[in-house]
Design a protein around this nucleic acid. Structure first.
Lengths: 249, 249
DNA sequence: CGACTCGTTGAGTGATATCAAACCCGGTGG
DNA sequence: CCACCGGGTTTGATATCACTCAACGAGTCG
């Protein structure tokens, strides 16, 4: 297996996009004990209320999402994840899962030994820093979602989600910023932005009619992402994509 | 100054509620360089878009909140903070603020040197673990807020916020679980739960009429917090208050 | 060819927003 | 001591965005 074929090389790449690593760091990450595992949608990777598992799932390919349930049975998706994300980074040091994680499409993961990952994060400052940044960016995304769901109207909400996924995919090298395949049903889209599937349908139609998106099944294309960003009130600041550069003055 | 008077002793206590610390850890925390600083509401502690400061603000007393703005000018409060919270833990390793932090009442803080705090977190595994837990719980709260704002109706939303603040205050030793003084205007309450101040007013009235809360100015009292929790769809799981105990099986 | 899931559309409803006015209360200054 | 002021609260009337219910179409799978 060549170095780039190593399943954890994607984790190395991701962390290096957050903070510089040494050769030793890279080797330590690649030496982590793990097992590959594939989930088919809509399999659960983690269930709300479960005690922490012995491993952490890292996404090699495919999409997944986090969700929480209200007492009424209503579902809220709280984030979407793609190749390079550590799915249970949010639970790395917590005893019990406060939300579920489900596969959205065929999901290839590396299940990394949790204790070993904890050690690496705590014992190696440079890796720790990169992981901190990653976890803090996750949290920043949650905050943006609170704003999205709390204070934007339907068109902006849906458009914002489309922008976020596009920008994050592009940053992860998964699309060209012109469009992508989003395997979310309109029901799930609604659960992500706090709307009904019916209203998502009408909202997507409206965005199409405005010329902001073009759809074909679950493929979404944008001719002019900038216009969509304006409609979505989207600013990439909260994604902190520039972390690897020197601190701003 | 006796040990308990030390402004950072509250930070020690908070971290010990998250994970065990050694004597050396405690000493290292108390040895952090800091300066006390008081803010009067509604002063800004941090502004969205600003580059990272040279220090991190730790709350000694008083309340503060985080907020983000939409392009329309709408405001969304994304969390509320009290004594024992590190306000910019969420930015500890990020270059630029993605949200603002404002004082809600007279706010006494210790401004801890950021680089020193970073070092402590990265170099001392036990402190690092406690800080990780703290940051991950913050993130868990953001997720709960996404659910709150996205999928609960007005009564449950407002009630949920009241429950969260009560439970967190009680955990921090700031109230008895029977009620408290909440220095939020109804406008701010609305900004926290994604409603209008007018609707918050009607919702509070409805909660009073249901006998779930009693109000006198900005004092809120509950005769039966359990009933309020049911109405709020509140479960404290997401606050992870049991972290200090052994991992669940 | 059912049976099922997902997407689409229409009609009616409802929860929350908006607009506007009155009220309350602590503070200030004459 | 009173008049006034300003921020916050309360209430009413109306508007609107998004939800609900319901039906139908298209695609897929066994």
């Amino acid at each position: 297996m060549s170095r780039d074929d190593h399943p954890l090389s994607k984790l190395v790449r991701k962390l290096e996009s957050r903070a510089p690593l040494s050769d030793g760091d890279r080797a330590a990450i690649l030496a982590l004990p793990f097992a590959e595992r594939t989930y088919e949608a809509p399999a659960y990777v983690l269930r709300e209320g479960e005690p922490a598992k012995k491993h952490c799932s890292f996404v090699i390919s495919g999409l997944a999402f986090r969700q929480k349930l209200a007492a009424t049975g209503a579902r809220q998706i709280v984030s979407i994840h793609m190749a390079g994300d550590v799915l249970d980074l949010q639970h790395l040091f917590l005893n019990r899962a406060d939300h579920s994680v489900q596969a959205l499409s065929r999901l290839e993961t590396a299940e990394i030994d949790r204790a070993a990952l904890q050690d690496l994060v705590l014992e190696r400052p440079t890796i720790g820093r990169a992981m901190w940044i990653d976890a803090l960016i996750d949290a920043s995304i949650f905050r943006e979602w609170v704003l999205n769901v709390g204070r934007r109207d339907a068109k902006a909400r849906v458009a914002h989600l489309l922008c976020e996924v596009s920008v994050r995919m592009e940053a992860a090298g998964l699309n060209d910023g012109q469009g992508y395949h989003l395997p979310l049903t309109q029901e799930q889209l609604g659960d992500a932005v706090g709307l009904t599937s019916v209203h998502v349908n009408r909202t997507l139609k409206a965005l199409s009619e405005l010329g902001l998106i073009r759809r074909d099944k679950r493929h979404v294309r944008f001719d002019d992402l900038d216009r969509l960003k304006v409609a979505a009130d989207f600013s990439a600041l909260y994604l902190h994509l520039d972390q690897s550069r020197a601190p701003a003055e």
